[in-house]
Simulated assay, not measured.
Amino acid sequence: MSATATPPIDDSPARISVGLALATSFLGTLALAVSTVSLAAGGLGFVLVGLGLVRGWRTAVTLGGAGLFCGVVLAGLVGAPAVAVVFATAAAVVAWDIATFGIDVGEELGREAGTARLELVHAGASVVTAAIPAVIGMVLFRTADGGTALVPIALLCGAVVLVVVLRP
């Protein structure tokens, strides 16, 4: 008797998360088009997120998120509009979170598993987690008569910490 061998499970990152993370990091990169330097940093971040998703490398995804965030800082330094800075920050956070989640789902359940609802719910929660402090920060920024964009950026950094702490 011969046992039939089962094919190995494809543990590549989950498809929907890959698409959403790439789209989000691309939009964040576009928001950084206020200067060549910030766009270059964001573009490098986008490429690293993409490479991490193709290979399933968390380190590349994290470096990509850091590249996007460096682009945010550079955009802020050249005087980019607060809305662009806040949007790019939120996009960097959401792209990183969705990408790492997609890698986790792929490793745990396999790429072919029916995870659409799981991925979409997680992506929605990630967007809300980034959007709430972004909106609060922008309201505070506008009511403070537009002094500095540090308030919304600080709130979004708090959202990053919250996401990292709450992840299993």
Rank of each mutant, 00 (worst) to 15 (best):
68 L>T: 02
98 I>K: 00
92 A>K: 02
77 L>T: 13
21 A>D: 01
5 A>E: 13
154 A>N: 09
25 S>V: 08
145 D>M: 12
42 G>T: 11
38 S>V: 04
123 A>V: 13
4 T>W: 04
163 V>L: 14
52 G>K: 05
89 T>Y: 06
85 V>K: 00
64 G>E: 03
146 G>Q: 14
20 L>Q: 03
141 F>H: 06
83 V>P: 01
23 A>F: 08
106 G>V: 01
89 T>I: 01
136 I>P: 07
27 L>P: 01
73 V>F: 04
148 T>K: 13
22 L>N: 04
24 T>Y: 01
118 L>H: 13
151 V>A: 05
131 A>I: 10
49 V>S: 04
47 V>K: 07
71 G>F: 01
122 H>T: 09
112 E>V: 07
35 S>A: 13
10 D>Y: 03
94 V>N: 01
121 V>M: 10
20 L>E: 03
133 P>F: 06
148 T>D: 15
89 T>G: 14
121 V>D: 05
57 W>A: 09
30 L>V: 14
51 L>H: 06
79 G>C: 09
96 W>D: 08
66 A>T: 14
69 F>C: 07
127 V>C: 11
81 P>G: 15
31 A>H: 04
107 E>Y: 10
49 V>L: 10
128 V>Y: 05
124 G>F: 02
140 L>E: 04
14 A>W: 04
47 V>P: 03
133 P>Q: 09
85 V>I: 12
113 A>K: 09
